[in-house]
Nucleic acid binder design. Sequence first.
DNA 1: CTGTTTTATGCAAAGGTTTGCGCAAAGCTT
DNA 2: AAGCTTTGCGCAAACCTTTGCATAAAACAG
Lengths: 339, 339
Amino acid sequence: MKKRHTSLKDLADELGISISTVSRALKNNPIISPELTRKIKELATKRNYIPNPLAMGLLRQQTKMIGVIVPDLVTHFYSSIISGMEEVAKENGYYIIIASSNESLEKEKESVNNLLKSRVEGLIVCISQETNSFEHFELLIQNEIPLVFFDRVAESLEVPSVTVDGAEAAKNVTRHFYENGRRHIAYISGPEHLNISKHRKEGYLKGLKECGLEFIPDLLVECNLNAEEAALATRKLLNLKQIPDAIFGINDTIAFAAMKEIKKHKLRIPDDIALVGFTDEFHSTVVEPTLTSVTHPTLQMGKEAARLFFESIEKGENFAEKVVLQTNLVIRESSVKRI
Amino acid sequence: MKKRHTSLKDLADELGISISTVSRALKNNPIISPELTRKIKELATKRNYIPNPLAMGLLRQQTKMIGVIVPDLVTHFYSSIISGMEEVAKENGYYIIIASSNESLEKEKESVNNLLKSRVEGLIVCISQETNSFEHFELLIQNEIPLVFFDRVAESLEVPSVTVDGAEAAKNVTRHFYENGRRHIAYISGPEHLNISKHRKEGYLKGLKECGLEFIPDLLVECNLNAEEAALATRKLLNLKQIPDAIFGINDTIAFAAMKEIKKHKLRIPDDIALVGFTDEFHSTVVEPTLTSVTHPTLQMGKEAARLFFESIEKGENFAEKVVLQTNLVIRESSVKRI
DNA sequence: CTGTTTTATGCAAAGGTTTGCGCAAAGCTT
DNA sequence: AAGCTTTGCGCAAACCTTTGCATAAAACAG
């Protein structure tokens, strides 16, 4: 049999006073005499009194919980962002409940529902790669439930978000390739409807243009964001009559898969093909060759997302600040020819 | 201004009936007439009624929340285990709140307190590497708050737990080295007070014995579980007069750090030194050479831990089942000489 | 037509907290 | 001494749900 937690009533009864007096004393309300306050506090400590958050929540109509939906939990990128969110949430006395969509629209909808059922005060979401309709989010907006997007956003919705400048980053990668003598630069992209795919592609194209390179449609392949499809996409590139001398993957998962595939084809990195990834997973530095990658300020992204969330709670429905963070191209072995 | 969620009272008022009738109708209580039930359900759907979990929780004295404390979130090992827990928790209508100790005893204690404040119904914990005292857990046991350990456990406490058979695994690694011609097998261990360190060391020693190898104290180095200390430990091994021809790291973080260090010393893996890790992080297959590792059934560990938790809630204080799962040695390039 | 059973619904308490308002007693003013 | 202010505390409502018990109306037996 579980013991009940100590309540205000328990304390009040034991001291023969009213509940309200106990409540006030514990909050240092000066209206309660000093000696009584002292006595009450003493007993509270002794009985290990902890305010019941359910009762408080009921009263104040708030659960102090934020729902977070990520495509998956096991990717360093997301867990790192979550760490950042957690930090800011904690500072504000909030808790985070995590749900993963597993990159499935269906599971994403389900997660939204589940989190709503548990009365989270709002949601911070990175949409799944399948997500191409947004009714489940529109419903949130209609009901004035705070919503923040990060990384992958539904651009048609007026919602605060934190993203990175993917176009700029992709442009820089392209230029980096060019400056290192590459002329047949390929890009493995993700689903077209994702903002991240779109922007990085734009940057890629812009980069080509600035470098005076022609866009060769064969060098742009699109695939879902998993290792299998990435391997397939890479194979497609390696089977071209004119194979690329540089490949840029929309994220590191893609880049690692490409790396494996390139090695399998007995091609050398970076000698035959230069390779660059995106998001800078932790293991970029342990693969061989070490992977040049566009680093994301993940911790900061998480913190910003949480900050936006709290601002959204405060300012209400019309708040839709878009935070765009800069990335950083960290050059390692995979993209620069050894001298 | 946030709209309030629809409550039973809202529905009752709108229909001009009492709250209890609405409540009963929604639970298909046959005592309410079919037509009224239908009408009520219709309105409930229309108004998007969701029962308030706070009110329910207050009534039933349960929050449906489990607190989980992990050393960190960004390691694949932990996030994968958490995924498993989440699955089982969801099936049981529970939510998980995650806190990371960052391998610090202080933060671990703080997390226990925070989670208790938010009235989680119990805790599932992997203790931090610093944790060598357990008062904060004993307090939980005294207050009959369900507690489950996973991977790293406080062995002195009578608490359900799920671990792997580290001794057996370490023995097998040692034998694997021996069978591949290694005779100077080193082991980089973690803090001695951790059960995982202790058991794997036992297995290592047992393996040596079974293979008829002498235990050389210099070949056993202990370090904290981070890349820096692991690099230091590796350097120590590589500076020995008789350097080892095989190194076994207590986890993959250690093994990767060792790999970098070995490469830095211009030694070849596995030719000069064979290397094996533990826990099989995702990137074991992308490093070069690919890393032989002892795989953990992480998803299953998470599920088992959650299962134990629910069993603990049911059976109460005297329940202390210990689940020990088997690992699997996955042999890759880092431990076997190329022919 | 009266008394009893059945049927359908409402009342109220409990769970824990906060807080506006009320009220008594004590202290003060003139 | 009478009236006024201050001080210190309690009452009760509100937040939302469930559920044992009460109650009203309807149906039925005799």
